[in-house]
């Protein structure tokens, strides 16, 4: 690759050919990627649009010895991966972005000092989610994605409040979003 080609390659989105990717789990919790005869260790996967697309546009990247961010490329759609590879990649993303889904909001109490106590049913069980600075950490993004971050940094979500939550839940959260 000439200098010019190299410098212009930077502005191209390198979509990876899923058929040529082989991910394996590392003991470090990250992944090893083998592609086109090259091996990359401690590979990190990042959802480029974590709120909207869980399995599309996944950045495959790593940090070099100088701690520089190097992007190997982007997986356009994880469906293009083989079943086994899909599982390996999905497992990593699922724990990296571990967020229980809120399926019901039973009640919300506000303590008048910026904190909310949300009694909710989530995929991780029934929770009383304690939220400080609720106007920052209990947000409806784009009108339908509920983003919740509790006082301990645990995150919860509901990707489509209109579709997933019942009327009672919607009524409970209406005043706070």
């Amino acid at each position: 690759m000439s200098i010019n080609e190299e410098s212009f390659a930077a502005d191209k989105l390198n979509i990876l050919d899923c058929g040529r990717l082989k991910f394996t789990k590392e003991k470090s919790g990250f992944m090893t990627l083998e592609t086109d005869g090259k091996t990359y260790n401690k590979v990190n996967l990042t959802r480029l649009q974590p709120f909207y697309e869980k399995t599309r546009f996944i950045s495959v990247n790593y940090e070099n010895d100088e701690k520089e961010f190097i992007e190997i490329g982007v997986i356009r759609d994880m469906k293009e991966l083989s079943d086994g590879q899909f599982e390996v990649v999905n497992d990593f993303l699922e724990y990296k972005y571990y967020m229980p889904l809120i399926t019901k909001i039973c009640s919300i109490k506000e303590n008048m000092r910026g904190s909310l106590f949300v009694k909710a049913v989530t995929t991780a069980g029934d929770k009383t989610i304690c939220i400080r600075d609720w106007y920052r950490n209990f947000k409806l993004i784009g009108g339908k994605y509920l983003y919740v971050c509790d006082v301990e940094g645990n995150k919860y979500y509901c990707d489509d409040v209109e579709m997933r939550l019942d009327k009672k839940s919607l009524a409970a959260m209406e005043m706070f979003t």
């Binding site: 590392e26 003991k27 470090s28 919790g29 990250f30 401690k42 974590p50 724990y95 990296k96 972005y97 571990y98 967020m99 301990e152 940094g153 645990n154 995150k155």
Partner: peptide
């Protein structure tokens, strides 16, 4: 990480070990 965290140890050989994963 985003929704969870890991405790990692780096061996003197340079290899990394993730001991466990936990919520925030």
């Amino acid at each position: 990480l985003v929704g969870s965290s890991m405790m990692i140890g780096e061996l003197k050989s340079g290899e990394s070990i993730a001991f466990c994963i936990f919520r925030q």
